[in-house]
Design a protein around this nucleic acid. Sequence first.
DNA 1: TCTGGGGTCCTAGGACCC
DNA 2: TCTGGGGTCCTAGGACCC
Length: 390
Amino acid sequence: MACFIHADIDAFYASVEQLDHPGYRGKPVIVGGLPSDKRSVVSTASYEARSFGVHSAMPIFQAYKLCPGGIFLRGNMGRYKEKSQEVLAVFSDFSPDVKAISIDEAFIDITGTERLFGPPETLAKNLKERVLRKTGLVVSLGLASNKYIAKIASGMSKPDGLYIIPPGGEEGFMRSLRVNKIWGAGRKSQELFKKYGLKTGEDIYALPKEKLTLIFGKAFGLFLYRAVRGEAAAAFDDDRGSHSISSERTFPHDLYDEFTIETVLFDICQDLMFRLYTNNLQGRTIFIKIRYDDFHTESARETYPYPVVSMNELFEFLRLLFQKKYKPGRRVRLLGAGLSNLEPENHSRQNELFEMINEKERKLEKHILEINTKYPHAALKRGRSWLIDK
DNA sequence: TCTGGGGTCCTAGGACCC
DNA sequence: TCTGGGGTCCTAGGACCC
C-alpha cells in the first residue's frame, strides 16, 4: 500500500526570521514589506501576527492597521532557500523519494519503509522531531495513500500538525470534508459551492458527473467528481519541467512615460536573459503583461518559429509587442514579460555561420549579465544604450 | 492606501490542414 | 450552392497555488 507524507513548514519565512533573531520570538512578525512599502503584500505572518487577523496576501498597509506593533520585514529569499535545503535534507534521511513542490512544502514517499523506520505514524513523529532538532523549524504533516489527500491532511491540524488518513479511509475523509478545505477550489469555486448549496464533500458526492462538469467546467468538474471519491488527483503526479519564465514589477507610483516604461522593460529583459542563460534554456514564445491603474490587466504574446537568440532580440521583440498593446497615456502600475515554449539551449536549427556569430554575441551578453547581476550598481547597468545601439 | 511575484493549467475561439 | 469533422497550433484571459 502506497504511503505519502505531505510536509509543510509552519509560517516558514516568519519562522526563519524568529530563528535568526531571538528578539523576534514570541512576537508578531510580518514578512513581505515595510509599512512604508505602499504596494506590498504579506508573504508570511507568524502565528502571533495571525492572531491580529493578519494573513498572507493581505496588503501591508492593512496588516499595519491591524498590527501596528508588528515587526515588518522585507525578507531574505537567499536565507529562506538555504533553510529550505536543510529541511529537505532531513526529509531525505527518511526516504530516497522526496519531491519539493514549493520552497516550504514537499511530498515524501515512504511506501515500504516500515522495516527501516517502523509504522508511518512512528516515522512521522521521528521526522518532525528531527526537523526541529536539526533546523529549528516546525513542520505539519499529512499522511495518506495518495498525494492529494496527504496535502489536504497536512493542513488539518496546523501548526505543528500530524494528521493521518488510514488506508481505506480516503473516501470517508473526502466526503466529510468541508468544501473550503478542497485544494484547487479558490475564491470563484467557493462562490459556486455557496450558490449551489454545497457545504461538504458529501454534497458534491451526491451530484452526477454531468451536473458537476456543467457547473464547474469539464476539467475541474471531473476533478471534483474523482476527488470526493478519494481518488488520487493527477495534479501532483507528473514530473513537469519548466514551461515558462517571467518577471514583473509593480511600480511604487504609476508610470505613463513610454521611455521610462521601456527602460523598466529593459531591466526585466536582463533578468529574463540571465535566468535563461544560467539554466541553459531558450524560448520561442514571448509575452508581456500590462496592468493599468484600474487594475485592468492585458497581455499579448507572440510565437516565433525559432527560439529568441539574444538579449538584443528579446528586447526588440518585447518592445514591439508592448507598443502594439500599450494605450499611450494610460497609467501603468505593473509591467511584466516572459518567455514560454522553453527548450534546452542549442536545439535551434540555425545554420552554422549564424550559430557562430550568435555564439559570440551570447558569450558577450553572458558576461555582461553576470556582471550586472553580481554588481547591480555597476556602470553597465546604468544605460540601456549598450545593446540598443549595436 | 486597495490588491506582490513566480508559476501552472484550463477555456474558447480562430487559423489552417487533411 | 449554405457549407463535415478531426487534429494541431496559437492567442487572450482567467482561476488557482504558494
